[in-house]
């Protein structure tokens, strides 16, 4: 009974943050702030949704169901893959957006980015 309540709680949190990611993508004004919503919220939401799946797998494993172990271990691998790849993808998109010349909308401070990147670009353009 308590187990079921925990699972429903995890599902609720996961769906809420995934929905927040969708709304944030629509409401924010430029690429960088959209990346904030699209990366953090989906990572956190998937953490809880896949976490509930792992809990179900562990319970099935405890009850000697053969599918339980596979469910738990493979879901853990998928979770690790998401946790590793999501920030790296966001970083790649942000760097590509800045190098293709998109300025952050309504930025308070930007000159720190504008100057040294050109130096960096020359360096990477060479090799």
């Amino acid at each position: 009974m308590i187990f079921d309540i925990i699972i429903y709680l995890f599902i609720g949190i996961g769906i809420f943050f995934n929905l927040l990611a969708g709304i944030g993508l629509l409401r924010f004004p430029d690429v960088y702030t959209r990346l904030h919503a699209g990366t953090k919220c989906t990572t956190f939401g998937s953490l809880f949704l896949i976490g509930s799946v792992i809990l179900i797998g562990l319970k099935l494993w405890w009850e000697k169901d053969t599918n339980g172990s596979v469910l738990a271990i493979h879901s853990t691998i998928a979770l690790i893959a998401i946790l590793l790849t999501n920030p790296v993808g966001a970083h790649a998109i942000a760097r590509a957006a800045h190098r293709s010349g998109i300025q952050p909308a309504g930025a308070v401070i930007d000159e720190l980015q504008a100057k040294p990147v050109e130096k960096n670009e020359e360096k990477t353009g060479g090799d």
């Binding site: 990346l35 989906t42 998401i82 999501n86 993808g89």
Partner: peptide
């Protein structure tokens, strides 16, 4: 174009889950 890539990236994560 980066806006669209952000959207596709978000959809990818949701499809995995």
């Amino acid at each position: 174009a980066p806006d669209r890539v952000v959207g596709v990236d978000t959809i990818n994560t949701m499809v995995i889950v």
